[in-house]
Design a binder for these strands. Sequence first.
DNA 1: ACCTAAGCGAGACGGTACGTCACGTCTTGTC
DNA 2: GACAAGACGTGACGTACCGTCTCGCTTAGGT
Lengths: 200, 200, 200, 200
Amino acid sequence: MSAEAEEQDPKEKSKTRQSIGARKNPDTEMAILDAAAEIIAEKGIGGLRMEAVARKAKAGKATLYRWWPSRGALLLAVYQRNKPSMCYSNTGSLHEDFLHFAKDLTEIWQGETGLFFKAIIAESQSDPDVAEKLKDYHAERLEALATVVERAQLRGEISQKEDPATRAELLIGLMWQRLLNNRLDETIDEHIRMLANSET
Amino acid sequence: MSAEAEEQDPKEKSKTRQSIGARKNPDTEMAILDAAAEIIAEKGIGGLRMEAVARKAKAGKATLYRWWPSRGALLLAVYQRNKPSMCYSNTGSLHEDFLHFAKDLTEIWQGETGLFFKAIIAESQSDPDVAEKLKDYHAERLEALATVVERAQLRGEISQKEDPATRAELLIGLMWQRLLNNRLDETIDEHIRMLANSET
Amino acid sequence: MSAEAEEQDPKEKSKTRQSIGARKNPDTEMAILDAAAEIIAEKGIGGLRMEAVARKAKAGKATLYRWWPSRGALLLAVYQRNKPSMCYSNTGSLHEDFLHFAKDLTEIWQGETGLFFKAIIAESQSDPDVAEKLKDYHAERLEALATVVERAQLRGEISQKEDPATRAELLIGLMWQRLLNNRLDETIDEHIRMLANSET
Amino acid sequence: MSAEAEEQDPKEKSKTRQSIGARKNPDTEMAILDAAAEIIAEKGIGGLRMEAVARKAKAGKATLYRWWPSRGALLLAVYQRNKPSMCYSNTGSLHEDFLHFAKDLTEIWQGETGLFFKAIIAESQSDPDVAEKLKDYHAERLEALATVVERAQLRGEISQKEDPATRAELLIGLMWQRLLNNRLDETIDEHIRMLANSET
DNA sequence: ACCTAAGCGAGACGGTACGTCACGTCTTGTC
DNA sequence: GACAAGACGTGACGTACCGTCTCGCTTAGGT
């Protein structure tokens, strides 16, 4: 009646894990993160229920709450594990580099990861822990992109006086806004041209 | 432990409304939207519960669900009623206009409205209706700011060839990103200078 | 794996009950008390779980707790419904009357009712509500038996000066002690002879 | 909210015990029984939790379960250690002896021991081991009191033909019933007079 | 002047998920 | 090999909301 597809696949080995002494069992952690990831893939993050995770991972709710005391904590743990790895090109042209960045990110975000990232932003509005982690993550991303700008400064493409983070932040802001409005498919070329030009 | 402050203020007149015949009672609508707005102000949108709204508005749950069948619908109704009114300055300088826009919006968002808007963005990630409405609203805002850019084009401040929405979107994207990361207080002058300069 | 026989018999009509307005639904009450009684019959009172009752009665836990806020309350409700009806004989001889009383009670208590009553006594040691109700019930029983003694006084069988409750209480105390020690099967004739004799 | 007073008193020496080799450590046993006794004193027997005992005694749960595999076993062990010692007077008058017995027992039961004994009776309804031990203990008590009756028979106070246990059991039954109904404070003189008189 | 129709408050109903608690079993590392 | 420690799966606890429902009341508009 209620049980849909959230039970463990019966074909998998279903020997139940047990304690391995007074310390965290890594098998348990993996099973739980796997279960959470699958559920998110199936029903979206809004459909993530602690009970369902425990059920699917064949773990006790107490175990779940011991290590991830909230939905947000679990969410972040899953994201950390599946974090997309961006690589920042170095073509010798800021415009090209920005273009690559935008295209790569668009591609990543158009898949499952985009749903995930949107959901984390949403969650961060109500869970301070998630908000903080997201802020850190965002800062890290910003810095990475700022490095790309810095290279352009060193090449003399753009003024050395401006803060490299400025252009980076404008680009990332644009991307966020597009992501959150489901408008990733719209053109972005003109925006990038503007951000990559030589003035300050 | 449970009873906090969500009961109707006993000082207010608490005569219960009733049917006024076979049609919607506008008092009821107002009472419900008021109640919802107050709850959101107190606990945030994440803390908005249909039951609590009904209780506070002294309305039956059936009445609530009759007119606003979901949390999202109620949310949007409240937002429509309390929508902040931005005014777009026309100083003859794009830089000044952008600066005014950013300062005004920052001020508005630093208050309750910001919480509200963030929450709507969050909600839009799980409620398609809200997402659609938000998209419309965003487009409308974008257009309004694009008009400011257009004026600069007409004045010859910037190139006529670029799409006026481009600069507008970059600015708005920046603002969204700042809002969602709780970084509205950080400086934004350099970004605006870059967005308002004459190249494309 | 866990579900044993506590699901509703599928042969019974299983249309789910619903609200009948802003008042208690007697069907629900009956279903819950039936379910509780069955569970007690199967697993004993120690095996009575609120969740299992709700499950078997196809009722929500909230409904259960709304009307019977504790295990003890539910226990008492079931007992009230199934209360054994003792009848007190009037043979013209106190000894005979006591003997009948003891035999009847022994018979009743040797069945399911005895388990039930023992469990209520046990429960009363930790639930003050149950304790109070049990005290009332005990007082009522005592009075009924005291009436038997009183008749003997009126007949002149025993002294008019003694409190008729005295003999009654000694007999009931004996019975309780036998019940609680699982010694109902041992002889009791001599005790009754002593309690029914003419002195004070 | 949860942490109350069940942690070990920090003033006490809290050096943790350890194994003394491949045999039972008597310090551990004592610490556990002490902890259990204290918890029972604080929260009643219904509040006795194996986990809490282990925590308070700074013992591992495995150790606890090794020696006392159930709540009932632990309960009995504590009771054995703290068993109240009744002494049976020998005044030369059955009435006096019974009176002393009743008064002494009332006094004992009105304190902590009474709570304890009630709880054991309650526990015995669901734990067969406890039930058996309680039955033995009860028999022992009965015999002791029967000895008092026997002395009265030898003195010629009462008939030699009756079983001395009869009167004893009636008295003890009365006491149990009073204890379990929280009616120890009510008068008992008339009952004793009746039980101590010379007829059978 | 009656009758129907709908809105209204109230709140009970079957559910699902929550986060906590205790259970009894297990494994580790220390003595 | 006994011990403290504490993680593990299990499952009941009591609470909070969900969205649906029926009730008894009120009023407006049609007859």
